[in-house]
Amino acid sequence: MVVTGSQNVTRILLIGGGHTHVVALRRLASMKPAGLDIHLVSPEPSTSYSGLLPGHIAGHWPRTDLEIPLAPLCHPSGTTLHTTRAISLDPSARIAGLDDGRELAFEYASLDIGAIAAVDAPDGLVSVGVPVKPLGPFADQWSAFVSSVEAGANPPCAAVIGAGTAGVELALSMKHRLDKLDLTARPKVALIERGEVLLPDGNASMRRQLEKELNRACVTVYKGEPVVDADETLVRLASGESVPARFVALATGARPQSWLAGTGLALNDGFVSVSPTLQSISHPHIFACGDTAHLTFSPRPKAGVFAVRQGAVLAEQIGRLAANRALSEYHPQTDYLKLVSLGRRRAIAEKWGVSLNLPGMWSLKRHIDFDFMKDN
């Protein structure tokens, strides 16, 4: 069954509960543009905020603190929430297919469905590894593992595959959490990177400081070590070494949701190619943002800071559509403040190539993250 809108209003379909759509909905609640019928499709009734994940993994705040409920967010803007998953999109027919069997017609749609962990790995690692994305299921599986360790059902040994910023944060956070348990066995956490350096896209100053933190926390680091196999008890490296691990986190970069390939949208490595207005370069009535989008005009890494900034832009675009006005352009910042959690209540800040490891950085990160949650 195709669900259509009224002929007197313009239907806007927001697909995915990512950070951009969260911010856009909050802005739309205050803007209250007339003549719109807005719908949000999300597989879960809440969305997990990435900025708070390392602190939760480290045990600093509970699982519930990660979640932004979507229904209270939708209500002020008059948005209809559909708690189901979008599984297809026909841009030409302007119809989205849903996992519950329905189809939603729209005039304009926005895609903010995030990305999933990129796993180019042996079957054994794919089988036992827990992708960092989506965040919610990862957090749930980590909590289950910690409970099993506390109950004596599993030894306190874990591994993180991928030593980008997310991988380093997770390794430090996981080690901190396990160290705080009342255990007789000594916790072990390994950080495994197939490349020769940590933070392959980072700067030397940040890399040096994070290497010191990993050493301080007694996280075992393997560089230049591809994984050749894994099972429920260990990870095997190309060098022949076996790393004990009962929980394996996959922080191996991002890849797009597979169903985007069947949409006919112009893609770049599977991500939706967009113009400065955040419109698809092939289908202008489709917007894409956050990790779902490839900014053709100014490529940027898959970082939450860009998704959050795009929220205000998307809300403005929707308001301009309602008023039949020309769209504005998004200009991503060339540099931004990076705050990297260190497991313990410390963080490193980096901007303009300068890194600072000061006590106040943790408080700054906590303030920014919880301020974002409070606004939503």
Rank of each mutant, 00 (worst) to 15 (best):
Q7G: 15
T10R: 12
L13R: 00
G18Y: 01
H19A: 15
H21W: 10
V23D: 06
V23W: 01
M31W: 09
L40T: 00
P43C: 07
P43W: 15
S50C: 04
H56E: 04
A58T: 05
G59P: 03
R63P: 12
T64P: 07
I68R: 01
L70F: 10
A71L: 14
L73I: 12
H82P: 00
P91K: 08
L98M: 06
L98H: 06
D99P: 06
L104H: 04
F106M: 04
I113D: 00
A118L: 06
A118F: 12
P122H: 03
G124Q: 09
L125N: 00
S127T: 15
V130T: 13
P134W: 08
L135E: 06
F138L: 04
W142L: 09
S143N: 12
A144E: 08
V149C: 09
E150Y: 07
P156M: 09
A158G: 02
A159L: 13
A159F: 13
G162D: 04
E169N: 07
A171S: 15
A171C: 10
L172Y: 06
L172S: 03
S173Q: 05
K175D: 09
K175P: 03
D182E: 11
R186I: 12
P187H: 14
A190W: 03
L191P: 03
I192M: 08
E193Q: 15
G195P: 00
G195A: 13
E196T: 14
V197R: 10
V197M: 11
V197D: 11
L199F: 10
G202L: 05
N203A: 10
S205N: 09
Q209F: 02
L214R: 02
R216W: 10
C218R: 04
C218F: 09
P226W: 10
V235I: 09
L237Q: 03
A238W: 10
S242F: 06
F247V: 04
L250R: 06
T252V: 14
A254R: 07
Q257P: 09
G262M: 07
T263M: 06
G264W: 01
L267F: 12
N268T: 08
S275A: 14
S275D: 15
Q279V: 13
T292H: 02
L295R: 05
P301M: 13
A303L: 14
V308N: 02
R309Y: 00
G311A: 08
A312M: 01
V313P: 00
Q317C: 09
R320E: 14
N324Q: 07
L327G: 05
S328E: 15
T334E: 10
Y336H: 06
L337H: 11
K338M: 09
K338S: 13
S341A: 14
G343D: 10
G343V: 05
S355W: 02
N357L: 10
N357E: 08
L364G: 06
K365Q: 11
H367S: 08
F370Q: 15
F372E: 04
D375G: 14
N376P: 01
